[in-house]
Simulated assay, not measured.
Amino acid sequence: MADRLVYVLNGPNLNRLGKREPGIYGTQTLADIGAMLEARGATLGMTIAMRQSNHEGALVDWLHEAEDKGAHAVLLNAGAYTHTSVALLDAIRAISVPVVEVHLSNPHTREDFRHTSWVGMAARGTIAGFGARSYLLALEAAAEF
């Protein structure tokens, strides 16, 4: 079976993982998470395209690119844009590639403003609250699409 391409898109401040509020986000870096995903993806016949940007427009462009490149799925941790970005909502709705929303922490146990997810309104599903393992669970879910 040919490898299926999975985009893993990460939003603002996720480049600071391992340093940023480890009590909430853990001590693993984004590079650590990428390595875990690549290893698990190899066993699932999936190729990982891992990206991070602090800029909303880059995430929108990469969502479009995922469809243009024939991606199997997108795992999206939009960070704070989850709760503010109608542009990401529209971009997810504009593509046919299934998107899985991913969060390290559980937004519903945090501040009230984090309880609304614009990304979740268009995502196929959401996995949150399991730290770095949230990404692996999302990848395993995407393998079933």
Rank of each mutant, 00 (worst) to 15 (best):
R124M: 14
D68M: 14
R51I: 00
E140D: 15
L9E: 12
A58G: 08
L17Y: 06
A2L: 10
R16W: 11
Q52L: 06
G26E: 08
V97K: 04
L76E: 00
A78R: 03
L89Q: 09
W118L: 12
G34R: 08
G57T: 09
R40A: 11
G26A: 07
S134R: 09
S105N: 05
N15K: 04
D61M: 01
S85E: 04
Q52D: 10
A42F: 04
G57D: 12
S85I: 02
R20Y: 00
L9H: 09
H115W: 11
A73G: 04
E111F: 01
L37E: 01
R40D: 10
V119T: 14
P22E: 11
A123M: 09
L5A: 12
S53M: 04
A91R: 03
G79C: 11
Y25T: 08
R114P: 11
L5K: 15
A94R: 07
L30D: 09
R124P: 12
D61I: 01
P107D: 07
A91M: 06
A58L: 10
P22Y: 10
L88M: 00
E140V: 06
I33V: 00
G41Q: 02
D61F: 02
G57F: 06
M1A: 14
H108F: 13
M50A: 01
Y25G: 11
T84M: 07
N15Q: 09
A132K: 00
R4A: 15
V74Y: 08
V119Q: 09
A66Q: 02
V74S: 08
A143H: 10
V60A: 13
K69E: 15
G120P: 15
H64I: 12
T43Q: 14
A87G: 05
T116S: 14
I95H: 06
G57K: 07
G11C: 01
G11D: 02
V100L: 14
T126E: 15
L9A: 07
A49K: 08
R40W: 07
Y81R: 04
T82F: 12
